[in-house]
């Protein structure tokens, strides 16, 4: 009867953990390089600046880029103020209790609602009942509901990271609570809040299920908020799913991935700078 010595177990366990981590990072690198390898060679200035022709077989993706930007603007234009206001209430204006518990439960549950449900909701409320039709407005409103929890959570974390002395000093100078928040707390928490906003933008760009049922998939260049438009993600989905053009699909996916990379890296560096500044 010999048991494996603890030292050997330790080695095996560490080996396993290392391989798990390497596998995970490998998956990330694989996904990104798979898309870039297939798509980068098809990206050109013309691809980014031309209209979608022949359902996507020819031309470029400019209307999808513009549609994405419009929809993100609507989504963030609503979710950012609402989310930051929620966070200010939770972090600065109230004590933990039954009410905040209920509010937090709502936020956590909303964060877990699948995107297809947001799609159904947006379709029935904005597209059908309010009569906005398949439009950038309907899509943006539905997206704003989806990204709200992300914005709230990050903003609250940023507000809670502000040292108490900032509030005490301002309050001791006779500032009202609102003055304390706007003049002293918010400026300090701004980078953290912006991180949440950027993450919300990222979530909106990568989303497909919500947008396809609320904004439709028109290929024309959108000229108003009431126009239907496809986002880059929807365009890519249709190209890939209906087998319209693999080259164009790869290229669109590559643009999408690069956008997401830039957004995530900038969110991360902003967060990083914040924590660094706090340590100093």
């Amino acid at each position: 009867m010999s048991r494996i010595s603890p030292k050997i177990t330790e080695k095996i366990a560490k080996l396993f953990l290392w391989s798990a981590a390497i596998f995970t990072i490998g998956a990330l690198i694989f996904v990104i390089s798979f898309v870039l390898a297939g798509g980068l060679k098809h990206i050109s200035w013309a691809f980014l600046t031309q209209p979608i022709l022949d359902m996507g077989r020819e031309g470029g993706i400019l209307p999808a880029i513009v549609g994405t930007i419009f929809m993100v603007f609507v989504a963030i234009g609503i979710a950012a103020p609402l989310g930051v206001a929620s966070a200010i209430y939770l972090a600065e204006y109230t004590r933990e209790g039954k009410v905040t518990q209920a509010i937090r439960f709502g936020i956590n549950c909303l964060a877990g609602v699948p995107s297809i449900i947001f799609g159904l909701f947006g379709f029935i409320l904005f597209v059908v009942m309010l009569g906005f039709g398949w439009s950038i407005l309907s899509g943006g409103l539905s997206l704003s509901a989806m990204i709200l929890p992300t914005v709230i959570r990050t903003a609250e974390e940023a507000l809670r990271a502000v040292p108490a002395s900032y509030r005490d000093v301002a309050a001791s100078l006779g500032a009202t609570r609102w003055q304390v928040v706007t003049r002293s707390v918010l400026p300090y928490a701004l980078p953290g809040i912006l991180t949440g906003v950027i993450l919300g933008i990222g979530r909106s760009i990568e989303e497909t299920a919500v947008v396809i049922f609320t904004a439709g998939s028109a290929v024309q260049m959108p000229t108003s908020l009431f126009d239907s438009s496809r986002t880059m993600a929807v365009h890519f989905y249709i190209l890939a799913r209906e087998g319209i053009s693999n080259d164009m699909a790869y290229a669109t996916a590559a643009v999408l991935i690069i956008t997401i990379l830039v957004i995530n890296v900038s969110a991360y560096t902003m967060m990083h700078r914040l924590t660094k500044g706090r340590r100093a």
């Binding site: 998956a27 996904v31 990104i32 990568e206 989303e207 497909t208 989905y237 999408l256 991935i257």
Partner: peptide, 12 residues
């Protein structure tokens, strides 16, 4: 970042 990659890309 894995969470940031669009789900349609995973599907593709």
């Amino acid at each position: 970042l894995l969470a940031g990659i669009p789900s349609v890309v995973y599907g593709f």
